Structures are given as structure tokens and as C-alpha cells.
Amino acid sequence: MNCTVLGCGRWGSFLASFHSRRGRVVLWGRSGSRSFETLRESRKNDYLTLPEAVVLEEDLGRALAASETVIISISAQQLRGFAARLNGHPIAGKTFILCMKGLEEETGKRLTQVMRESLTQPVGLAVWVGPGHVQDFLAGVPNCMVVDSDDRALTRRIVEQFQSELLRLYIGTDLIGTEIGAAAKNVMGIAAGLLDGKGLSSLKGALMARGAREIARLIRAMGGNELSAYGLCHLGDYEATLFSPHSHNRRFGEAVARGEQYTLLAEGVPTTQALVRLGEAHGVELPICETVYAILYRGVPAEEAFQRLFFRSAKEEFYV
């Protein structure tokens, strides 16, 4: 099973390493980037050593030509520009799998929407999301994830192709819900970190319940299945995001609450703004997302923002 992985960060390098057990994998990275140069010099990064079956490639055209199945694992906010670059190569008929989570900050659009708008050639397109950290997978700890697309046959083929004893894949049936849920869990991760940073970790149970509920309302308003919020894309990913020491989003929120700097990528930051815009556009209250937004974008102190959240008018628990 040959495939190409575009993006050599921790998730991209792990996927390339893991899938190379079944065949040749080409791992593309941008020449001059720290991640790619580190791998090129030593075939190692902070997490793993690349097997011999992984071929490092800096030429995008050669990387794309190597396989019919292409995994993309880059920052969500870079996707539109990167997709435009793909148009310069013969990619018609290939299958692209987005192993990334997020929404376009300026438009609130889902990543498959960004890809469809940007590509000028017909391709198969799917997302692969869910819980799991590279550190745990490398330690042999298995987890469950979900693959989704607007083509049921394509979804099944990807699941059958990549299913393994370490990664149990489920067949998704709600692309809208899967993408919104996966992106939104990063915002909940920031909220969890804010609670941790303020010594309010006992509230994370309530955050899980209320967070999933408000995202379910948004998914339904957007035409998806609200039950997706309680599946692997969102609620199923909470342990890895709200509690894990490996979670960049949780650690970012904790740093903000403590007035500290955090330099690693936290995809939940731009996603917070995108979700607030979607909530306004669809007339859906998103109190937790709006609280995180107030802290990150308006400079409202966490204590004040939390107080506003807690003193909202009383609601029925499962209000529409």
C-alpha cells in the first residue's frame, strides 16, 4: 500500500512512519522548514525515527506523482493557499485525505469546502479525525478514529485500506458534523486549559457536557446530524484534548490563564473566531465558544469571562 503524506509535523511524520509498514511512503516537507530539515539531517524528530521505507521528498510534484492516495497534514489556516499550489500538478482522480482539524478563520468554512473551492481538478476527498496523540500511538496505545466524506464508497475504501490494530477506523456518515465537531473540540481544549490555569479543573466534567451540547446545536443548524457531536469527532476526542498533557490546545489555554507564553501551534485559536461567526450566521448560542473568544480576542480577564458565563439566565438543560 503506497501513499504520500504532505506535511512532516508530528502527525504527518507519524502517519508516514506507521503506514510504511505496509509499503512505500513518500513524506513531503517544505525545504528550509525546521521540521523537514531535522528529518533530512537525521531522519529523526522529537517523537520518532523514520523507517527506511519512508522516502523524504521536497519536490511537491514528485511527491504527488508517487501515489494515488495523498494524506494532507498541515495547519488548517494554510490549506487554501496550499490547495492552490496543488492545481499546478496533475492530480485528477487522486484521493486526498485531510488528517487535520479546523475551520478557516476568515470564512468559517469547513476544510473540505476550502479544498473544493480551491481545486480545479476532480479528486476524491475525505477527512480523518478523532482522538489520539502521537506519543500514545508510538507507545502502542490504540485508539478509535473516524473517516468521513460525501462519498460513502470512498469512505469505506479508505477505512478498509488503513484499518489496523492500532488505529480502529469507523465509517462516518455526516461530513458536516464530523468536520465541525473535530474543529470545535480544539476550542473546548482551550477552555479546559483556562479552567486548569485558574484552578477550576473540577468544572471540566460540566464543560464536556455543555460543550458537546452547544456544538450539537450548531451542527444541526448547519444541516448536519447533531448526534455527531457525541461521536468520535468531538466528545470522543475530549479525553485527548481536555485532560492530556500532550494537548497543545489545553496547554495553550492553561498558559493564557497563567499569563505565560506558549509558542506551539494551537489550532483552536483561529477556530474560536470561526465558530463564533458561524453561531451568529446560523442564530445559535455558543456560550462556551463566546467566552473563549472574549478572553482570546477581546482581552476580557478569564475570571470576568467565567463569571459572565456562570451567571447567564437559567436554561433547561437540553433546550433547543
Rank of each mutant, 00 (worst) to 15 (best):
G81K: 08
S202K: 13
R277N: 13
M1K: 13
E285Q: 14
G88V: 01
G102T: 07
F310M: 12
Y170I: 09
G193D: 01
M115E: 01
A229M: 15
F311S: 10
G231M: 04
Q161A: 14
H234S: 09
S164W: 02
R168T: 10
E41H: 12
D148L: 06
Q273E: 14
V256Q: 05
Q261A: 13
G12Y: 02
L103C: 09
I97D: 07
T178H: 13
R156G: 10
G199N: 08
F243G: 06
G172Y: 02
I219Q: 07
F310G: 14
D174K: 13
R156I: 13
C8L: 05
R217M: 09
Q78E: 07
L60E: 03
H133A: 01
A184Q: 00
I288S: 06
A53E: 10
V134Y: 01
L48W: 11
K315T: 07
E179S: 09
E52L: 09
D150T: 14
S35G: 06
T69C: 08
E68V: 10
W28E: 00
L203K: 10
S164R: 08
S164N: 12
N186I: 07
G172R: 03
L232Y: 00
G130P: 02
I190R: 06
R298V: 01
S67M: 11
T178N: 11
R62H: 14
Y319A: 15
E52T: 11
G81M: 05
A255V: 09
V54C: 04
A65H: 05
R152A: 13
E104R: 06
L200P: 10
R21N: 10
G81C: 04
I288M: 03
V54D: 00
L175D: 01
Y170A: 12
G93R: 07
A257M: 03
I71N: 01
F36C: 01
A216K: 08
F36Y: 15
G299A: 14
A92W: 10
P245V: 02
L50P: 01
E68K: 12
L242V: 03
M1N: 12
R116V: 13
S75N: 07
L169A: 13
T120P: 05
R277M: 15
R213S: 11
G211D: 09
L265I: 15
G88S: 12
A257E: 00
V276G: 07
H248F: 08
I219F: 10
A65Y: 04
E226S: 09
G102F: 08
E254A: 06
I295E: 06
Y297E: 12
A183D: 04
G223P: 15
L264K: 14
T49M: 14
L296Y: 10
T291D: 03
G224C: 03
K44L: 12
L286S: 02
Q113D: 15
A221C: 08
A229P: 11
L264T: 09
R116K: 15
K185Y: 11
G193H: 00
A66G: 03
G283M: 07
A274D: 02
L169T: 10
S75E: 06
T291Q: 08
V5G: 00
Y262T: 00
V141M: 11
E117F: 03
Y293H: 13
S73W: 00
P90R: 13
G279N: 13
M100E: 02
